[in-house]
Design a protein around this nucleic acid. Sequence first.
DNA 1: TTCTAAAATTGAGTCAATTCTGTTTTTATG
DNA 2: CATAAAAACAGAATTGACTCAATTTTAGAA
Lengths: 204, 204
Amino acid sequence: MSGLRARQKADRHRRIIEAAAELFREAGYEGAKIEAIAAQAEVSVGTIYNYYQNKGDILGAIVSLEVNEVLNAGQGVVARPPANVGDALDTLIGIYIEHSLHYLSKEMWRQAMAISTQLPDSPFGQAYTALDRALTEQIRALIARLQALGLVRQDIDGAALGELIFNNMNMMFIEFVKRDAAKIPELRAAIRRQNRILVAAIGT
Amino acid sequence: MSGLRARQKADRHRRIIEAAAELFREAGYEGAKIEAIAAQAEVSVGTIYNYYQNKGDILGAIVSLEVNEVLNAGQGVVARPPANVGDALDTLIGIYIEHSLHYLSKEMWRQAMAISTQLPDSPFGQAYTALDRALTEQIRALIARLQALGLVRQDIDGAALGELIFNNMNMMFIEFVKRDAAKIPELRAAIRRQNRILVAAIGT
DNA sequence: TTCTAAAATTGAGTCAATTCTGTTTTTATG
DNA sequence: CATAAAAACAGAATTGACTCAATTTTAGAA
């Protein structure tokens, strides 16, 4: 099929996202007015609201792109993890963190996180929760892999451990985006230090 | 001194907070209009903005009251902790969680958390970060206490451990307030399960 | 090709937070 | 006491996200 209508729709979606991404980057989330996004995308304000429930959902679409790339990159580590528990965790978490500021500024992350807690039932709120879950799941998968390789004790509660590691990392990341001065290497070092306690407890 | 001006100021502060707390509870954060708060407090809209930078800061003042009570209650546990690492952590965390919904609804917590990430440099954003730090510090103090009592190994990195426990608990609490259906006993059970991994690793 | 129902678009209008400017109240001084 | 400076107040005006009724475009049947 792919009628005219469907093509125009996809095209408008793309134009809105591109316009928003550009303006968010240039002017910040608050600074990017809906009217400006509409003008840049060559649609009307009403049309934007036909495609997205609110301004946050536009940002949400951009965040989803970013996180999905990260999840993809993480798969490689899960498939072939370094032969050392600490390094394996550090490598996976490193991918998450290093990738995180590619498309999104700290300010955009702050807004995205804020919206996802403020409106947990909006389309974006639910999508963000699902992304968090997917990341937790991937850490859990890494632990299962390490258990299969005999690097992590079999009697460890993998589900609880995955959540613990993800929750700690995520909270550290939240604090990281809240402070503009915070640097990536310091964030990684702090998380490594925290995980060291766990690594000592679960390794064979 | 305590001139008329200072007294009126304190009185207006109190009236605004009381009016806001009542309306937030009744109508929710978004539902409580600034005009309504102003009317209820018998001041003008302009005056409210003279006292608080924005609507979020009013909520922030209420949240601070709540968290400070919690910190206070926690001190008792740190002073005389149960003679078992798992129970000690569970007791302290229990106090935090059970107290959390006394004055604040889940919706108010969501708003407060959102604002604190959205505007980390606003008065409330900074206050919220300080409160988080104080809670982390209290968990750290409990661990130090348990180490002094010989219940936790001396060679454990107490600072990192405190952060790990707080970050995990906080993230679980965030997810808890995001889901209206989530219940306190389940939250506590989930955190206990996660902490069990740590308890096994650090106990003597 | 022509016509009609459904889908999509438009932009002026609404609503509520925040800002701004002129007025009033308080304080401190002679 | 009178009064000028400082502080606080009031509420009208501004701003920007979001809504909605009217209009335009598309798909597909005749």
